[in-house]
Design a protein around this nucleic acid. Structure first.
Lengths: 267, 267
DNA sequence: AACTGTATGTCGATC
DNA sequence: GATCGACGTACAGTT
């Protein structure tokens, strides 16, 4: 690899599939020419995913503030404005910008520079890449209607349709019942005519879950003449959450993932 | 690009800098040979960051469950076990595995396959890449002692050293005072000898912040003979948080980022 | 290892 | 656009 070849080995690949499809073509450049890189980035920033590998410095200022000294890292720019700087560890980027940021490349003092700005809150990221080793530009898809199964919403759905799993004799009054204190997962009535507030948590319930339940119960106690009970439904409760449950006299109903999967198969 | 060249155009680049340093060498391969790719991935998975661009399917099973149909995406594997699948939008990966997952590549039915497993909780990701267009293997750094400035901890530090900003005449009793209900940011005493619980939030404080404060105050009221007051310190409060503040009779002290920056310069 | 609280949380839904 | 709660939250610090 000689300096003279810089910026010359730009290649666009159309694979067999892509020739008919043309959606998977991509550009990869090693040791890109600075000006060329800036131009390609600006040309593709709204259309494709851009990946840069190189030694870079970065500065973030906004809700908080952070800076990175010169080191080799991975920079990713997405068409929606997302900016990610990744290091060799962690699921989280060290520095980032969420969607709707405006990113553009320029050359400052002969250094490839990426500037990113977003508003509300106002936050900026400035990245200097004195040594860009690799530039990749890729067509990437986006899954519409992407669904994660086994979320709290799903559990609430299932339990609403088989409320006897929570307690025998319960009758559902409402789902996602809106109150001043927030939205109650399931509002029900027990066989003695008591109002029952049911708060559902997907995994391990912590103290906040119990306090949330407490707030809902308090709100309903003010507006309802009938006694109000609280039930927490979760896979498990932390010890301190359990303490609060007993203190407030709420009931805990354990559900297992297994049970829910069976239930889902039935319904 | 012909099929015959598949797997042959592997290149390792040592830039001028890197020749002495040897830390920034990297490998990029277009239309990698499946077997070769699997071998390279397994060889580098504990040492370098691996990026694959290609049409891929994925399946996640663990705390929840999700699947992705065949489409072009970016797959990243980090030496710490992190796995990320990114699409063209969002800051978040669509599917991922946090650090400490065990990832390896294999060829199943002629298809490049990545399998990832982690324990506690047990979660698996299986990725099939029938069309790998690009494989990149990069040496990436990791910033030691990375510091974000302007976090809550910092604000608590500053306020502890200049508690009169919260209220005149306050005397700090303890910082991070551990109670059964959690840790109180700052515990103080006012000029009338009342106990004061101070909860600090970095940005906008929501209802949870006020309820947290309430819990701390309640705990101290049980154990202390003296009256207990609550003060919420934040840049702002949401409307419902403010409602609760008034309901519980807590005080709100607004702090601005500007004020904190000035304060930091002073101290 | 379990538990607690913060986060530049991000994201989606609801108002 | 503001607000609120869930998240496969991740992550760090403490017991």
């Amino acid at each position: 690899m000689t300096v003279s070849s810089r910026g010359l080995d730009i290649t666009t690949f159309l694979t067999e599939k892509a020739q008919s499809d043309s959606s998977e073509d991509f550009i990869i450049i090693r040791d890109p020419d600075i000006e060329e890189a800036a131009k390609l980035i600006n040309h593709n920033r709204h259309r494709r995913v851009i990946i840069i590998y190189g030694k870079l410095k970065a500065l973030y200022e906004g809700r908080a503030k952070a800076s990175l000294d010169l080191a080799p890292r991975i920079l990713i720019l997405k068409p929606d404005g997302t900016l990610l700087i990744h290091e060799s560890t962690k699921r989280e980027p060290v520095i980032w910008q969420p969607p709707r940021a405006v990113n553009y490349a320029c050359v400052e003092d002969g250094i490839l520079t990426i500037k990113s700005t977003r508003t509300n809150p106002h936050e900026t990221v400035k990245i200097e890449i004195p040594l860009p080793y690799f530039l990749g530009i890729f067509n990437v898809g986006m899954t519409e209607n992407y669904k994660v199964m086994g979320t709290e919403k799903e559990i609430v759905d299932l339990l609403t349709r088989k409320i006897e799993l929570v307690e025998k004799g319960l009758k559902v009054i409402a789902r996602e019942y809106q109150t001043i204190a927030g939205s109650i997962d399931i509002l029900a009535e027990d066989c003695n005519g008591n109002i029952v507030v049911i708060e559902v948590k997907r995994g391990m319930a912590g103290p906040e879950a119990v306090h949330q339940l407490k707030r809902y119960v308090e709100v309903l106690e003010r507006t309802s003449q009938r006694p109000v009970r609280g039930i927490l439904v979760a896979e498990d409760v932390s010890s301190s959450a359990y303490k609060y449950l007993r203190e407030y006299g709420f009931k805990f109903v354990r559900i297992t993932r297994r049970l829910l999967e069976d239930l889902q198969r039935q319904l």
